[in-house]
């Protein structure tokens, strides 16, 4: 009975053995896990920023694509206030012209209450009581984008009807916004590169430090005939386990943070802000971040180890 127990113990000893080198006691390798957790977390945020900015610029572009607006100001070119009848007459003439245009799908003259609601954040609920003149806005939907010549002809025709009226293609405004989202997307790409570089340097640094710390033990393994592959495999396995833990924790924290941001952005309900509400495809892209970092860690560790081990006798 005692002998049987002892034998089981022995098998347990062999089974419990995980590494020939004392990695479990290394503080430095745990530091690497923390670094990888942070890198994956930042990678998630950076990718979230990129995806949401892309979605936002798509939303802006598609929302304004094939759309134009005609503004009929309440004041004429001579700064005289127009009365309601004059405004209605100009509106009808422009409306008739646009409805007859072959490129126009539909038009929509914005009602006064809609206009009041739109300017309410700046002018309050009752701008008309304050004698603030309101323009007329006509929203135009097009079959297709107009050529420069067609656009110019349309602008000229509207000016012929009313010299004070303006045709706005939103292009200037949209260009500014797209430049802004483009810059943020670029920042997110730079962040991703910095994250990759930091991960690479952290892993290489930890591997070199661990190798230096265990130099005597590594030399002993070499003297017993352990190949570079044998030793490298042990390091790699250890680093892969640590990196996997770091990646999982980082990914969970990153996903949680994105959910929190999405919830806050959703509650604000402001259409100009990115909403951070991702679909399954977006999450799939996100899932590549920990895998990419894991592969990066593995390749870096392997190359650093191979180079260092080959320098040993």
């Amino acid at each position: 009975m005692i002998l049987k127990k002892r034998k089981e113990n022995r098998i347990g000893t062999a089974a419990k053995r995980r590494y020939d080198l004392p990695f479990q006691k290394d503080i430095g390798t745990r530091y690497m896990m923390v670094v990888i957790t942070l890198m994956v977390f930042l990678g998630f945020l950076s990718m979230a920023l990129h995806i949401s900015m892309s979605a936002l610029s798509d939303r802006w572009t598609s929302g304004l694509e094939g759309k134009m607006t005609v503004e009929i100001p309440a004041q004429g070119l001579n700064q005289d206030m127009r009365d309601k009848d004059e405004m209605a007459a100009i509106t009808t003439r422009i409306q008739n012209y646009l409805e007859a245009h072959s490129a126009v799908t539909s038009i929509d003259v914005m009602a006064e209450d809609e206009l009041i609601a739109m300017v309410a954040p700046w002018l309050g609920d009752q701008p008309t009581q304050m004698d603030i003149p309101l323009p007329v806005l006509i929203s135009i939907d097009l079959y297709r984008d107009l050529t420069e010549a067609q656009l110019s002809a349309m602008k000229n025709h509207i000016i012929e009807i009313d010299a004070a009226s303006r045709l706005d293609t939103h292009q200037n405004w949209l260009d500014e916004l797209l430049r802004f989202t483009g810059a943020i997307k670029m920042v997110s790409i730079v962040m991703a590169l910095v994250i990759a570089l930091t991960t690479l340097m952290a892993v290489a640094g930890v591997v070199r430090a661990r190798l230096a710390a265990h130099m005597d033990d590594v030399e002993l393994l070499h003297l017993m005939g352990a190949t570079d592959n044998y030793i490298a495999h042990q390091f790699q396995r250890h680093i892969l386990i640590l990196s996997s833990k770091g990646c999982i924790i980082g990914a969970l924290l990153g996903a949680l943070m994105i959910k929190i941001i999405a919830s806050i952005a959703g509650n604000m309900g402001f259409a100009l802000l990115p909403d951070f509400s991702f679909n399954a495809g977006h999450w799939l892209i996100m899932a590549f971040i920990p895998f990419t970092i894991l592969i990066l860690c593995f390749i870096t560790a392997r190359n650093t180890l191979r180079r260092a081990l080959q320098k040993m006798p």
Partner: peptide
């Protein structure tokens, strides 16, 4: 001696065979 301090006597002795 150059025994690996974190390994049991069994694992230290087994090391050359594992390497092979």
């Amino acid at each position: 001696f150059r025994l690996l301090p974190h390994l049991s006597a069994y694992d230290n002795v087994a090391l050359p065979m594992r390497i092979s």
